[in-house]
Amino acid sequence: MEDQKIIDLIKSQKHDKVFTTLYKYFPVVKKMIVANGGRSEDAEDIYQEALIFFYKKASDPDFKLTSSINTYLYSIARFMWMDQFKKQQKQAFVDIEKEQVNELEFTAAIETENQLKLAEKVISELGERCKELLILFYFQSKKLRDIATKMGYNSENTAKNQKYKCLEAAKLKLKALQTND
Protein backbone atom coordinates (compact mmCIF):
# COMPACT_ATOMS: atom_id res chain seq x y z
CA MET A 1 0.00 0.00 0.00
CA GLU A 2 1.35 3.42 -0.88
CA ASP A 3 2.48 5.71 1.85
CA GLN A 4 -0.09 8.31 0.94
CA LYS A 5 -2.90 5.77 1.21
CA ILE A 6 -1.75 4.92 4.69
CA ILE A 7 -1.76 8.58 5.66
CA ASP A 8 -5.27 8.87 4.29
CA LEU A 9 -6.34 5.90 6.37
CA ILE A 10 -4.86 7.55 9.43
CA LYS A 11 -6.77 10.69 8.72
CA SER A 12 -9.94 8.60 8.49
CA GLN A 13 -9.01 7.06 11.84
CA LYS A 14 -8.86 3.55 10.52
CA HIS A 15 -6.33 2.56 13.14
CA ASP A 16 -6.89 -1.17 12.84
CA LYS A 17 -6.09 -1.33 9.18
CA VAL A 18 -3.21 1.10 9.53
CA PHE A 19 -1.48 -0.86 12.26
CA THR A 20 -1.99 -4.17 10.53
CA THR A 21 -0.54 -2.79 7.33
CA LEU A 22 2.39 -1.14 9.06
CA TYR A 23 3.49 -4.35 10.68
CA LYS A 24 5.21 -5.20 7.47
CA TYR A 25 7.98 -2.84 8.52
CA PHE A 26 8.40 -4.60 11.83
CA PRO A 27 11.10 -7.12 10.82
CA VAL A 28 13.69 -4.44 10.07
CA VAL A 29 13.03 -2.67 13.34
CA LYS A 30 13.22 -5.95 15.18
CA LYS A 31 16.53 -6.70 13.55
CA MET A 32 17.87 -3.35 14.63
CA ILE A 33 16.75 -3.72 18.20
CA VAL A 34 17.99 -7.26 18.50
CA ALA A 35 21.28 -6.25 16.98
CA ASN A 36 21.57 -3.70 19.72
CA GLY A 37 21.02 -5.78 22.78
CA GLY A 38 17.27 -6.00 22.75
CA ARG A 39 15.04 -9.03 23.08
CA SER A 40 12.05 -9.95 20.97
CA GLU A 41 9.69 -8.49 23.54
CA ASP A 42 11.60 -5.22 23.56
CA ALA A 43 11.23 -5.02 19.82
CA GLU A 44 7.52 -5.65 20.05
CA ASP A 45 7.03 -3.01 22.73
CA ILE A 46 9.12 -0.39 21.02
CA TYR A 47 7.39 -0.98 17.72
CA GLN A 48 3.99 -0.53 19.31
CA GLU A 49 5.10 2.74 20.80
CA ALA A 50 6.54 3.83 17.49
CA LEU A 51 3.32 2.97 15.69
CA ILE A 52 1.24 4.91 18.17
CA PHE A 53 3.55 7.84 18.00
CA PHE A 54 3.50 7.87 14.25
CA TYR A 55 -0.26 7.51 14.17
CA LYS A 56 -0.81 10.47 16.45
CA LYS A 57 1.66 12.61 14.59
CA ALA A 58 0.18 11.79 11.23
CA SER A 59 -3.30 12.57 12.51
CA ASP A 60 -2.29 16.17 12.83
CA PRO A 61 -3.70 18.12 9.86
CA ASP A 62 -0.38 19.96 9.56
CA PHE A 63 1.62 16.79 9.24
CA LYS A 64 3.74 16.45 6.14
CA LEU A 65 5.51 13.25 5.27
CA THR A 66 9.09 14.13 4.40
CA SER A 67 10.42 10.64 3.95
CA SER A 68 8.98 7.20 3.46
CA ILE A 69 6.89 5.82 6.29
CA ASN A 70 9.34 2.96 6.49
CA THR A 71 12.22 5.33 7.16
CA TYR A 72 10.15 7.36 9.55
CA LEU A 73 9.08 4.41 11.64
CA TYR A 74 12.56 3.04 11.70
CA SER A 75 13.94 6.36 12.89
CA ILE A 76 11.35 6.68 15.62
CA ALA A 77 11.93 3.17 16.84
CA ARG A 78 15.63 3.68 16.71
CA PHE A 79 15.38 6.82 18.77
CA MET A 80 13.13 5.20 21.32
CA TRP A 81 15.33 2.19 21.66
CA MET A 82 18.48 4.30 21.84
CA ASP A 83 16.87 6.24 24.64
CA GLN A 84 16.12 3.12 26.55
CA PHE A 85 19.32 1.49 25.55
CA LYS A 86 21.58 4.35 26.53
CA LYS A 87 20.50 3.91 30.07
CA GLN A 88 21.72 0.35 30.00
CA GLN A 89 24.90 0.08 28.03
CA LYS A 90 27.50 2.11 26.24
CA GLN A 91 28.20 0.19 23.08
CA ALA A 92 28.44 1.32 19.49
CA PHE A 93 25.03 1.34 17.87
CA VAL A 94 24.42 -0.97 14.91
CA ASP A 95 22.22 0.51 12.20
CA ILE A 96 20.28 -1.71 9.89
CA GLU A 97 18.85 0.93 7.59
CA LYS A 98 21.03 3.63 6.15
CA GLU A 99 18.32 6.18 5.55
CA GLN A 100 16.95 7.93 8.58
CA VAL A 101 14.95 10.93 9.54
CA ASN A 102 16.55 13.72 11.49
CA GLU A 103 15.82 12.98 15.11
CA LEU A 104 15.22 16.59 15.97
CA GLU A 105 11.98 16.29 14.04
CA PHE A 106 10.39 14.31 16.73
CA THR A 107 12.51 14.50 19.87
CA ALA A 108 10.25 17.02 21.51
CA ALA A 109 7.11 15.22 20.48
CA ILE A 110 8.38 11.96 21.88
CA GLU A 111 9.03 13.64 25.18
CA THR A 112 5.42 14.79 25.30
CA GLU A 113 4.29 11.30 24.43
CA ASN A 114 6.31 9.85 27.25
CA GLN A 115 4.43 11.98 29.69
CA LEU A 116 1.20 10.59 28.39
CA LYS A 117 2.40 7.08 29.06
CA LEU A 118 1.59 7.63 32.68
CA ALA A 119 -2.00 8.45 31.86
CA GLU A 120 -2.19 5.36 29.69
CA LYS A 121 -0.85 3.24 32.49
CA VAL A 122 -3.55 4.58 34.79
CA ILE A 123 -6.23 3.59 32.34
CA SER A 124 -4.89 0.10 31.91
CA GLU A 125 -4.87 -0.36 35.67
CA LEU A 126 -8.45 0.72 36.05
CA GLY A 127 -10.02 -2.66 35.71
CA GLU A 128 -11.39 -4.26 32.60
CA ARG A 129 -14.94 -2.89 32.79
CA CYS A 130 -13.87 0.71 33.28
CA LYS A 131 -11.19 0.44 30.66
CA GLU A 132 -13.53 -1.04 28.12
CA LEU A 133 -16.24 1.53 28.86
CA LEU A 134 -13.89 4.45 28.51
CA ILE A 135 -12.31 3.13 25.31
CA LEU A 136 -15.70 2.39 23.80
CA PHE A 137 -16.97 5.88 24.53
CA TYR A 138 -13.98 8.12 24.02
CA PHE A 139 -11.85 6.20 21.57
CA GLN A 140 -14.37 4.38 19.47
CA SER A 141 -17.00 7.10 19.92
CA LYS A 142 -19.81 4.63 20.51
CA LYS A 143 -23.17 5.91 21.68
CA LEU A 144 -24.09 5.47 25.34
CA ARG A 145 -27.16 3.55 24.35
CA ASP A 146 -25.12 0.96 22.45
CA ILE A 147 -22.55 0.79 25.21
CA ALA A 148 -25.27 0.13 27.74
CA THR A 149 -26.55 -2.78 25.69
CA LYS A 150 -23.13 -4.19 25.06
CA MET A 151 -21.95 -3.99 28.62
CA GLY A 152 -25.20 -4.94 30.25
CA TYR A 153 -26.13 -1.70 32.00
CA ASN A 154 -29.75 -1.12 32.90
CA SER A 155 -30.08 2.20 31.21
CA GLU A 156 -28.27 4.81 29.27
CA ASN A 157 -28.15 6.90 32.39
CA THR A 158 -26.47 4.15 34.32
CA ALA A 159 -23.84 3.94 31.65
CA LYS A 160 -23.32 7.64 31.81
CA ASN A 161 -22.91 7.60 35.54
CA GLN A 162 -20.52 4.71 35.37
CA LYS A 163 -18.52 6.56 32.77
CA TYR A 164 -18.08 9.52 35.03
CA LYS A 165 -17.19 7.29 37.95
CA CYS A 166 -14.51 5.64 35.93
CA LEU A 167 -13.18 9.00 34.83
CA GLU A 168 -13.10 10.11 38.41
CA ALA A 169 -11.21 7.04 39.48
CA ALA A 170 -8.74 7.62 36.69
CA LYS A 171 -8.25 11.22 37.66
CA LEU A 172 -7.63 10.35 41.25
CA LYS A 173 -5.13 7.70 40.36
CA LEU A 174 -3.30 9.95 37.95
CA LYS A 175 -3.20 12.71 40.51
CA ALA A 176 -1.74 10.36 43.07
CA LEU A 177 0.90 9.12 40.64
CA GLN A 178 1.81 12.59 39.59
CA THR A 179 2.37 13.85 43.08
CA ASN A 180 4.53 10.82 43.72
CA ASP A 181 6.69 11.55 40.72
Partner: peptide, 23 residues
Protein backbone atom coordinates in the same frame (compact mmCIF):
# COMPACT_ATOMS: atom_id res chain seq x y z
CA UNK B 1 -5.76 19.55 33.11
CA UNK B 2 -6.01 16.22 34.84
CA UNK B 3 -9.16 15.35 33.02
CA UNK B 4 -7.61 16.29 29.71
CA UNK B 5 -4.69 14.03 30.40
CA UNK B 6 -6.95 11.18 31.34
CA UNK B 7 -8.70 11.59 28.02
CA UNK B 8 -5.39 11.49 26.23
CA UNK B 9 -4.50 8.41 28.22
CA UNK B 10 -7.69 6.79 27.01
CA UNK B 11 -6.85 7.60 23.44
CA UNK B 12 -3.47 6.01 23.88
CA UNK B 13 -4.95 2.99 25.57
CA UNK B 14 -7.30 2.55 22.64
CA UNK B 15 -4.49 2.81 20.14
CA UNK B 16 -2.40 0.42 22.18
CA UNK B 17 -5.20 -2.11 22.14
CA UNK B 18 -5.53 -1.80 18.39
CA UNK B 19 -1.79 -2.11 17.89
CA UNK B 20 -1.69 -5.19 20.10
CA UNK B 21 -4.33 -6.83 17.98
CA UNK B 22 -2.36 -6.05 14.85
CA UNK B 23 0.67 -7.62 16.46
Amino acid sequence: ELQKQVLKGIERAGLKKSAKQSL
